[in-house]
Design a protein around this nucleic acid. Structure first.
Length: 390
RNA sequence: GGGGGUGUGGCAGAGUGGUCUAAUGCACCAGACUGUAAAUCUGGCGGGCUUGCCCUUCGGUGGUUCAAAUCCAUCCGCCCCCA
């Protein structure tokens, strides 16, 4: 039993409370574990996998895992950690995002053993009277104890009634689903704890155990991984992007990623050269979401491009040059790799353009004689194919 | 309902008639150095071209003025206090 408990506790930020959890595990009842994600972005990313992995632990122990898609709550917007009012999302946006979610989840969880639910199923049908019954169970003062609400309130920043009530809806999910354990990110702590209180108000004898997981920083190493900060590594990023993004993180962050995303023993990597350790991490992650073969191939490609400066045809984007004469800046703009011609000119002026691996300046004249490789900065590489006019 | 305040570039935040494409910081992009690291340094960071000029931007609209982010009117958003 203590072995199981250790396994569950591993990597968590907090378990509230351990005593609860122990009791539940000892009851040998099949427990219901919930984790919810609002489909506010089309992709799940590695940050989410920290939670999903923990869910997987419970699944492997034979418990019932519920993956909750917050299609209803997404319309309101979780205010957690937000310093400003959230844009509400339309049903269409949400639907679009939801479509890709479940497949991505099953890259980790067992499809046959996972229950997927959508909270619009019950929240969408909630009677006004029942809704008031719910919100009567908490108080304004209680809500304002939440740090981000308090900060916003003190800074005279707006808090909409909708987001103010959000935590109650999440708590209500736990009531409807009779959840024994809820898993969430560290920033979810308030919402998760409120779930306990609300369950109690609804007459639950045993309220949910709360497990919080540390937040995974994004590739910038500062903010939490999130679509809105554009610092994420998505589960359906191409192997090349996934590999590249991991290689570009700082060493310090790499060790955190090891801790939160892999089971690798720290002792086995601490003596490695950071670069090699990072290679190993990138390989591990890409392998998990693709295959070993793909991960190895991706590494080769990566080395080819960035170490050997040797680019093979099948790994770069292609662009067909049709016109006979094109200015360099126009070509760069037309290739779609920059947003404006001015930007193209700027990059040229700053020496950021290479053609066939040689730096070129603005006087460079493009000859429509043979195909060539165009590099814009370090990361954008495309091959320009000269269309044969005859 | 009454009173006060506020709205500036992706974000934060200066600017209260011309010198404003708008200080500064963050973010972002490029270069140098590297391990496509990080840190640091340098440059850039609205659009267009015939590179010197043109066009567009300070919540929206209208106005005053030779000249408006800045003044006036009006509308919209947001915050606070009183009820």
């Amino acid at each position: 039993m203590s072995e199981v408990l250790e396994k569950i506790k591993e990597g968590t930020n907090e378990v509230i409370s351990i005593k609860d959890l122990k009791k539940k595990l000892e009851s040998s009842k099949k427990l219901t574990i919930k984790m919810g994600i609002d489909p506010t972005a089309p992709n799940l990313h590695l940050g989410h996998t920290v939670l999903i992995n923990k869910l997987k632990t419970f699944q492997d122990l034979g418990h019932q895992v519920i993956f909750l898609v917050g299609d209803f709550t997404a319309q309101i917007g979780d205010p957690s950690g937000m310093s400003e009012i959230r844009q509400t999302m339309t049903k269409e946006q949400i639907k679009l995002n939801m479509r890709t979610y479940t497949d991505q989840v099953f890259k980790i969880l067992d499809r046959n053993k996972t229950k997927i639910v959508y909270n619009s199923e019950w929240l969408g049908k909630l009677e006004m009277s029942e809704f008031f019954n719910l919100i009567a169970k908490s108080t304004v003062a209680r809500m304002l104890t939440r740090d981000d609400f308090k900060k916003r309130y003190l800074n005279n920043n707006p808090i909409s009634m909708a987001e103010f009530l959000y935590p109650l809806l999440q708590a209500y999910d736990s009531v409807v689903l009779c959840v024994d354990i809820e898993i969430g990110g560290n920033d979810q702590k308030f919402n998760l704890l409120l779930g306990r209180e609300i369950q109690r108000s609804y007459g639950f004898n045993d309220v949910q155990t709360v497990i919080t997981m540390p937040l995974l920083e994004g590739t910038d190493g500062i903010k939490k991984m999130s679509k809105s900060y554009n610092n994420y590594i998505a589960l359906n990023d191409s192997p090349k992007d996934m590999f590249g993004k991991i290689m570009s993180i700082s060493d310090e962050l790499m060790y955190k990623y090891y801790k939160l995303l892999t089971q690798v023993d720290f002792n086995s990597i601490k003596n490695m050269h950071p670069k090699d350790a990072k290679y190993a991490l990138a390989l591990t992650i890409v392998e998990r979401y693709y295959t070993k073969e793909i991960s190895l191939k991706t590494k080769d490609e990566f080395d080819n491009i960035f170490v050997n400066k040797n680019i093979s045809n099948d790994i770069i984007k292609k662009y067909y040059l049709i016109d006979a004469d094109v200015k360099l800046s126009d070509l760069i703009f037309k290739s779609g790799m920059v947003l404006s011609k001015n930007e193209a000119k700027r990059i040229i002026a700053q020496g950021g353009i290479k053609i066939d691996f040689k730096k070129v300046n603005e006087d460079f004249i493009i000859r429509c004689e043979k195909s060539f490789i165009l590099q814009i900065g370090k990361k954008k590489i495309i091959k320009i194919l000269v269309k044969n006019t005859n």
